[in-house]
């Protein structure tokens, strides 16, 4: 741990000198409120399992499962993220300045995930209560089986958006290539406009809530329908 350099602004951890395990262990028992991480070079599992109200800045691209299971911490990635960004986040905030690969925010229970660029396929799959704001487009099958939480897409959505949705709600500013089974467009209400305004503000995107459409579950898959003859 000799290469940890403390400064007035916090701690700098350089993955060129430290192992991933050393960096994650330091983040699990933080002595500073702010930590900067250098040279991630696409490594997996960086800044996972944090549970303290610290800010973490990662300078560069990260690999699989970055900031997974996050609680309380605010993690900013100045680069792109691999698959499973902020998967199973419980609280706090994760932001990626570039693009995020598949399954960003998968199964996240709480907190806010902000993706400045595009998100690939299956963004917010099985979402369980977190909020996701995507500055660009989302790929196909986004919000698949999403159970709770809100997803704001400032760009376009791919195929099968919101397939088999439960109670999560999706707001899309651009084009929707196709809706998934049981997902439907619904009118925006005053509370929807308030939600979108609040989330855009938190994510610092300068769009009007008036530009967004609401997608939610038609709830036709909630109960077995004998007349459907399994033709779902």
């Amino acid at each position: 741990m000799e290469s940890l350099t403390e400064s007035l602004t916090g701690l700098t951890l350089d993955l060129a000198d430290l192992s991933l395990r050393e960096v994650n262990q330091t983040l699990h028992q933080p002595t500073q409120n702010h930590v900067q991480i250098l040279n991630p070079n696409g490594c997996h599992n960086l800044a996972v399992g944090l549970d303290a109200p610290i800010t973490v800045e990662i300078d560069g691209h990260v690999g699989y499962y970055a900031a997974g299971m996050n609680q309380q911490a605010s993690v900013t990635i100045r680069g792109n993220a691999g698959p499973g960004l902020a998967e199973n986040m419980m609280s706090g905030r994760v932001q990626v300045k570039g693009f995020a690969s598949v399954s960003a925010g998968a199964s996240a229970h709480g907190g806010l995930l902000v993706i400045d660029g595009d998100a690939s396929l299956r963004c917010g799959i099985s979402l369980k209560g977190a909020d996701i704001v995507v500055g660009g487009n989302v790929g196909s099958f986004s919000a698949f089986m999403a159970q709770a939480g809100r997803i704001v897409v400032c760009g376009d959505a791919g195929d099968a958006l919101g397939d088999s949705l439960y109670e999560a709600v999706i707001y899309v500013r651009g084009q929707i290539k196709s809706l998934g089974a049981d997902a439907q467009l619904e009118p925006m209400t005053a509370s929807d406009y308030a939600v979108v305004t609040e989330l855009l503000s938190k994510a610092e995107f300068d769009y009007s809530a008036q530009e967004f459409k609401r997608v939610a579950s038609a709830k036709q898959l909630y109960h077995w329908n004998i007349d459907a003859q399994q033709d779902y």
Partner: peptide
């Protein structure tokens, strides 16, 4: 398959980096 195999390349920080679309 992953960025970690590209991180060492010359001028990688100035490269245009993207995920190919399906």
């Amino acid at each position: 398959s992953e960025f970690r195999s590209l991180a060492h390349l010359p001028n990688i920080h100035d490269a245009s980096i993207y995920e190919p679309v399906p």
